[in-house]
Nucleic acid binder design. Structure first.
Lengths: 142, 142
DNA sequence: CCTTATTAATTGTACATACAACTATAGTAA
DNA sequence: TTACTATAGTTGTATGTACAATTAATAAGG
């Protein structure tokens, strides 16, 4: 059964969550080549772009809660991809050399993922669609 | 930080998943009055509309995997809201009287949730938006 | 009829995520 | 200085979800 054939296809909850699961799955397939789940990958990319960034900023940037960030960082630390150093009540997160080596693969994955969904959804359509989703997300936290 | 200000706000993965979390949160607040999480509530409503329905059909209808349906049903069964009877390799799921009593609250929650997001997103906008999400979801599983 | 394949559902296990409670540091007011 | 408050981060615990493996029952092929 297609999503649009469900009896709840007119409901915002059903629609957003089932779409998110489909997109997550697509993304997971792509990032498997980097050995990471999508959320770990995005987190790591932010750390690579901004070495020393604090968990609080990561939470804001990725729209996740601080506790989730802690949990993701634990995993990345176990994989020797980041290190945390703490001074006072602040914590800084740095990428390891191993993470830096991974950067090309990460960038490639971003590219591949983008290519893939553009080829499925269409360039302009996906662009407009994503813009709309952001608009909706913004309204929901007003 | 708003979702649209994140450095990944142009990425389909980031956008859909963060939007889904916001919608989930809104829905969870509403369905708390029924004492259920959104996914349990929708599952229960399908069972109420179609008593005796099989887990496989529930999975198709709700766009979830069979194992997830099993897990959700376990919880609902523990709360005495559904019962499972199995004949051969098929399982039938029925609502209990307690579930039937809950029906008005469930319907009210659907209504409240709809009112709430329409008031935030706008009637026509949310309508068009949801239709678009379904279109995208359909393309993603082609 | 027996064997093989298919299907329906459940289990073991793992993961991403969040909330509430907690620690520890920093800032502020008396 | 001391006491209160606010902030940053981490833990304990729970939830929803899925994959892979497993059971159990039906269907198909020889």
């Amino acid at each position: 059964m297609k999503a649009s054939e469900s009896r709840y296809c007119r409901c915002l909850y059903f629609t957003t969550s089932s779409l998110a699961r489909k997109v997550e799955k697509l993304a997971a397939g792509i990032w498997k080549q980097a050995g990471l789940s999508p959320s770990h990958a995005y987190l790591l990319m932010v750390v690579l772009e901004e070495p020393g960034i604090q968990p609080g900023s990561l939470a804001a940037e990725l729209q996740l809660t601080p506790s989730t960030i802690t949990r993701l960082l634990e995993k990345l630390e176990a994989k020797k991809l980041v290190v945390r150093t703490s001074e006072g009540k602040l914590t800084n997160v740095y990428p390891t050399p191993k993470a830096k080596e991974l950067l090309p693969v990460l960038k490639q994955s971003v590219y591949d993922f983008h290519q893939q969904y553009v080829s499925i959804l269409g360039k302009d359509e996906s662009d407009v669609f994503i813009r709309n989703m952001n608009k909706m997300a913004d309204k929901l936290e007003g």
